[in-house]
Design a protein around this nucleic acid. Sequence first.
DNA 1: CTCAATAGTTGAGAATGGCAAATGTCTACA
DNA 2: TGTAGACATTTGCCATTCTCAACTATTGAG
Lengths: 156, 156
Amino acid sequence: MGPMNPAAATTPDLSTGPSSPVQEAWALLRNLLFIERRRFLSAAAEYDLHPAQAGALMQLERDEGLPMHEIASLLACDSSNVTGIVDRLEARGLVTRRVSERDRRVKQIVPTELGLEVRDALRARMAQVPEGLGLLSAGDQRLLRDLLARALAASA
Amino acid sequence: MGPMNPAAATTPDLSTGPSSPVQEAWALLRNLLFIERRRFLSAAAEYDLHPAQAGALMQLERDEGLPMHEIASLLACDSSNVTGIVDRLEARGLVTRRVSERDRRVKQIVPTELGLEVRDALRARMAQVPEGLGLLSAGDQRLLRDLLARALAASA
DNA sequence: CTCAATAGTTGAGAATGGCAAATGTCTACA
DNA sequence: TGTAGACATTTGCCATTCTCAACTATTGAG
C-alpha cells in the first residue's frame, strides 16, 4: 500500500448523467476508502514505518513466512523494491530472511516476535471500524455485512 | 479507553476473538480497498502519471482551481511535495499555476483542457463499479446505497 | 507599523518504484 | 545426462515521493 499511495478522489459527482444506486453506493464507498488511506498512513507513521514497510509487515503470517515475490505481488510492485523494504525491516529486527528448504532460490520472510507485535498493532488499528459504520443499528450492521459478503462472494 | 469510548467499542479483539457483524463488514470493505488501490495504480500508469500526480489531478475542479496547500491537505502530505508534483503536471501541460487575486501568496492550480480530459478519464476509471457490487440485485444495490448513505451521513 | 502567521519554494537526505542486468537455482525436455 | 529456459533475488541507475528545516513574500491583527 503503500505508499501508498494517494487514493480515490472525493466524490466528484461527474455531472455527466444520472447515477444509478450502485454507482452512488460505490461513490460512498470510495469516500470511506479515502479516509481509510489516512488512517493507514498515520498508523504506519506511529510505528516509524514507511507505508510500504507497514504494508509488507501486515501481510506476514507467523509460521511459514512469505516469499519475497509474493510480497511483491501483494504490494503490486517490482520484486527489486521488496529487497530494500525487507532490508529495512530486517535491520530493525522485525523480520528475518529464511532460505526455503524446498527451493533454495526463494527466501521466506518471517516476522520476529517484535515484528508480530508491531504487525498486530497495525492490524488492530486498521481493523478499527470507522465511526459511521459503528453508528448503524445492529440490524443494519448485519444487513451491511450480508450484502457485502454476497457481493464479494460473487466476484471471487 | 474505557467502554464509554466509541472507538474502543469498535476495536476488534485481535487474538482469535469472534468478530461482530460490523467488524466483518469492515473486513470485507478493506478487501475492496485493497483491490481499489491496484485499479488506481494501473489507471495512473496508463496515463503515465505517478500516483501522487494522478491523485492531485483528480482533485481539481474546473473554474477556481485549488490552492496548493489544499492539495497538500487532500493528499495528506507536506506542501513541499506539492511543488514538485505540480511542477511535473505543469511541464506536461495538464495544469497551470495562477496567482490568486485575493491573496497573492496562494497559487490556484487550474487544469488545462488537456488536464480536464485526463482528469475525467481517471475519474471515470475509478467510478467504475467493482464487479461484485454490480452483481447484486437492483434491490440490494439500493439497500446498500441507503445503508452507506446513512452511515456516512452520521459520521459527517 | 510591527510582528506573528501563512503560502509557496528550495535543498538535503531517506525511501519507494520501475527497468535492466547479473547470479544462483530449479525444471522440463531432448 | 545435460542443457536450455524459467524463476527468485539482488544490484545499480534514475525519477519521484516524502519529510524536515530554512527562506521569501504576503497577509492580517494589534
